[in-house]
Write a protein that binds this DNA or RNA. Structure first.
Length: 244
DNA sequence: GGGAATGTTCACTA
DNA sequence: CTAGTGAACATTCC
């Protein structure tokens, strides 16, 4: 479920709970003091990268879906392990297999929205500068770095590189700055496109390389080796994506 | 049963 | 101290 645009989509659907008071807050375990949320009014629901932030007067709940997380609005999974369940007068919001945290510090101290590719504050030039500091790493690692491209995930990474015709195993130092800027811009524009597809309930038919077998540009067989620092599956066309 | 897959953090080693 | 490695967690599907 969980790349930036998917979380943004969830956030849009969850806006119906903004301004509502939590009737009941619960979870399968009591590692978090969720009782303090009961009776509190939701002030905002927004995202930072792949995290959903539900803010209250003095506290924020952050939910990260990690790899397997999922949510249900106005529904419960029969045997699911509830990681966070919030009940309101007009419905409920339930999370499973997620990482839930309570944040008491002001959000501006915790998050830098210039790093979030879907934020109005997103700064692609700063991203280029940060990529240059990674030097010896591969470009595919840079795109997954949440301190540079918050919200970009493994699937989006593949699509960005394909659209910019850059080979994932390219050396960061060798990729020209102009091309890096193109990647940064593509990170944002692809994320918004992805969000648009989510809104029309279309799933992944719009992807060009990820999970594909043949390059839509030249018919070459797509390769998908594990690559980079994190050894992630990386779909790419060995022919039309240039290796720097 | 085994192995993957949209992700991240932390303990441990060299 | 730092960089790198491996484990851990969690779920569903084939």
């Amino acid at each position: 479920m969980p790349e930036g645009p998917v979380i943004r989509f969830l956030s849009e659907k969850a806006q119906v709970f903004v301004g509502k008071k939590v009737k009941k807050a619960s979870a399968i375990d009591d590692s978090l003091d969720l009782k303090q949320l009961e009776g509190q009014k939701v002030t905002e629901i927004k995202t930072y990268g792949k995290q959903l932030l539900i803010t209250f007067d003095k506290i924020t709940v952050s939910v990260h879906l990690m790899l397997f997380g999922y949510y249900l609005i106005n529904g419960k999974k029969p045997n699911g392990k509830l990681r966070l369940g919030l009940e309101f007068d007009n419905g409920e919001l339930n999370f499973y297999a997620s990482q839930v945290k309570l944040i008491e510090e002001p959000l501006e101290e915790v998050y830098d929205w210039t790093v979030d590719v879907m934020s109005p504050k997103w700064d692609p030039n700063a991203a280029v500068d940060k990529m240059n500091k990674l030097k010896k790493l591969l470009i595919c690692d840079a795109l997954l770095d949440q301190d540079i491209f918050a919200g970009v995930g493994n699937k989006i990474k593949d699509e960005i590189l394909f659209n910019a015709k850059v080979h994932p195993a390219s050396n960061i130092e060798k990729v020209p700055d102009k091309k890096k800027k193109e990647l940064a811009d593509e990170a944002a524009s692809f994320s918004y496109k992805y969000l648009g597809w989510k809104r029309t309930e279309v799933q992944d038919e719009h992807f060009s390389v990820h999970w594909k077998e043949i390059c839509p540009r030249d018919g070459t067989a797509i390769e998908k080796p594990k690559m980079g620092k994190q050894d992630r599956t990386t779909y790419h066309c060995p022919k039309c994506q240039k290796k720097y």
